[in-house]
């Protein structure tokens, strides 16, 4: 491999195209096998991580070369305005309950994550990162930077929270007798953001609509609340 001799644009194109192709292959595989645990995102990350370790490429180089993909997260978040628009009539009827529940969720999940992290790991930086794991990546990362967390850990935690909700969320909710599409969508959108919502969108239209609604509102609530709540938690713990 002569990676260093390639012009950076060529390297960029090669890496982006292979990343997208690997993702496509795993997507096809999942569609064919219908197994929800064959998650294309998880498998792609795993294969690419092994690959760049194998060819001895630095993560920084991979990340900078595939920067256009990361930059697409912002327009992708904006695109989520479409399912939200489609759900506006639902909010009109239930907005008080939904807003109240999601705010309650944020006020429970941030303190629980911080308390658990401080008692088990005792690194404040990681406590900040883990407490922001339920919101969609661009917002989680932006908040992490503002609140002195570790953005790589946040990115990882966000993906993991997404997986747990996407892979186990529907069966867990069925198990505790939460069976309506609306409640399942709202819960998974609140806990597992875009990743969970993208996965459950295949189940039904209501899942995707309530999921997008929850992920968007939770992100807004977290962005408003966390700059006060997280420093307050640390203040109380000291």
């Amino acid at each position: 491999m002569y990676i260093d001799q390639l012009p950076s644009v060529a390297l960029s194109i090669i890496l982006i195209v292979s990343t997208v192709c690997i993702y496509q292959v795993f997507t096809k595989l999942q569609v064919k096998s219908k197994a929800i645990w064959l998650n294309p995102l998880l498998l792609s990350i795993f294969v690419i991580a092994l690959f760049i370790l194998y060819i001895d490429m630095s993560f920084q180089q991979y990340f900078e070369s595939t920067r256009p993909l990361t930059n697409l997260i912002e327009p992708a978040v904006v695109a989520l305005g479409f399912p939200l628009y489609q759900q506006l009539h639902t909010i009109k009827r239930q907005w008080k309950v939904i807003l109240l529940l999601l705010t309650l969720g944020v006020f429970i999940v941030i303190p629980v994550s911080i308390l658990l992290t401080v008692s088990l790991i005792a690194i404040p930086e990681i406590a900040v990162s883990l407490s922001l794991k339920s919101v969609t990546t661009p917002i989680g990362i932006a908040l992490t930077d503002a609140l002195n967390g570790n953005s790589a850990i946040t990115a990882f935690a966000i993906i993991l929270a997404g997986f747990f909700g996407a892979l186990l969320g529907p069966s867990w909710l069925n198990f505790i007798n939460v069976k309506s599409a609306e409640a399942q969508g709202l819960a998974i959108g609140a806990a597992s953001h875009a990743l969970g919502t993208a996965t459950i969108s295949k189940i039904s239209y209501e899942h995707s609509a309530y999921g997008s609604l929850a992920l968007i509102l939770s992100a807004v609530i977290t962005a408003v609340v966390s700059p006060f709540l997280i420093p307050f938690m640390f203040f109380c713990l000291n």
Binding site: T19, F59, Y62, F63, L72
Partner: peptide
């Protein structure tokens, strides 16, 4: 859209 999250996820290495 989940393809956009791959580079950030690989950061775990």
């Amino acid at each position: 859209m989940s393809v956009c999250f791959i580079p950030a996820g690989v950061g775990i290495i």
